[in-house]
Design a protein around this nucleic acid. Sequence first.
DNA 1: TCTAACACCTC
DNA 2: GGAGGTGTTAG
Length: 547
Amino acid sequence: MANGGDQFGLAGRPASDCMDPPEETKEDNPSYTLNSPASPQTASSQQGMDGIKVFLHDRELWTKFDEVGTEMIITKAGRRMFPSYKVKVTGLNPKTKYILLMDIVPGDDHRYKFADNKWSITGKAEPAMPGRLYVHPDSPATGAHWSRQLVSFQKLKLTNNHLDPFGHIILNSMHKYQPRLHIVKADENNGFGSKNTAFCTHVFSETAFIAVTSYQNHKITQLKIENNPFAKGFRGSDDNELHRMAKLQGKDYPVVPRSTVRQRACSTGSPFSAEGRGLRGSPETVGSPYSCENGLNSSASPQELLNAPPTHYPLPHPPLQHGHQPQVYHCTKKKVNCKGRIRPHPYKKSFSGSSPSEEESYYHRSSYPPPPGLPNNTALGLTDSPYSSDMGQRQACMFASSEPRLDELNCTSWSYTCPLPSAMTPMEPYPPYTPHPPYSSSPQGSRLSAIDHQSSPPLGEHITHDPYQSQSSGPPSQSSQPIHSRQLSPPLREYPRYTPNLSPPLYHTLETHTHIRCGVPEWSAASERIQRTYLKDCLVDRESQTH
DNA sequence: TCTAACACCTC
DNA sequence: GGAGGTGTTAG
């Protein structure tokens, strides 16, 4: 959340590591990029990754939501994200194959509540859900393919079902999250387990959100209705709408839509209407001096960033309510009692998809810790394979991963142990939440594996960031422990413990439970092997299904 | 808080 | 026409 994130009390944007020139401007639509390690060890990993740029599609819309405090519905069956996460990627080698995947990491270590029309911390976060990675259905594909058009992750679904068998990303309601995009080189020279596996992570702070089972902030509801085609039915349009509602309510006179009532009630008589709340561009939020507390800023070397285990993502927002004025309107959640739906007054379409060209102007690079299941330098060696996934409707592979927390980026070096469930033994769906040291985190892009993924400490609070700077980091270079074994063990997939047979064939999910702590990187060879293996398996599977 | 049924909508 | 994505609603 760019500014509004402040609503969530999110930490400021991640400081950029400045691997890239500070050429970025507000209009760069930068993503924070975490490139591959720059260490001698992994220097090669960066080859071909440095020039990669990612532009968030519909950034304006995202920002609009962010300013209010984005909320994403999570349901047992899985719910798509809206706005959809779509990006335009440039700088890829046309002939090289890449795997694009996403993960959603905790934004911090808190649980939130929405009261008095504002978000506030209500306690400690619940144990992190098993981390999962969503691999874009087209993966792996050539750079030319990815660059050809927008890369959409709109089919990614969020769920609150801890036992979800569909491979959806599991989240906790009332918790803050940060989506991340990972680009992994799947070149043949980067086989599974290869130390040269290159990848980079891109983070758009404006895509941070709070997971909810029902919308809390009415403004978000309205934004969704106004912009999501599938919610068109809830858009008010004109007087006819009122009459229609009246009919629904068995009345012959116009009825004021609930939303309208709320809106009015909320915005009336208060100097702190949503607009004035400062969520959007309020001086205090926009200009918030997100100090670099986690060292993500220039203080951390790319290498360090890479090494930094994923912790929760440092969101570019000031502490909750920080600098916020009381919300103006108090929207009661009481529903209007009527038979039919009460439609809100017509809302003007505030945003329409931005054109690609527009997006480009908003490019900004980013750098963050690698995806939990991603290759840390050692980890993911993706064998090249023409795993083209052209099944009618490609499915994405889901991987469990540890959820990185940015607030832990402080550490210059990281270590994490991955009590890897041997052979993907069913693990606790929700490992008891273990408080982590202030700056512990899981290694970035360390694995695509089933790693015990206990919640890791939040990074956000400790991170500062310059909204317009980019960071880049890569897999923990050190990866202190290279993947030793390249053998591909049986694919670890699904939730052996829950519904081994329920998993759709195309969804491969691994749940990761990772213990993270700050210190010297200690990679779990086992976990890495598993993730590496798993990913490969997933790809192979797809390939076989494709062909 | 959360869920399931629902009507309405897009695709 | 059907599948599936929406927010609403009641419980």
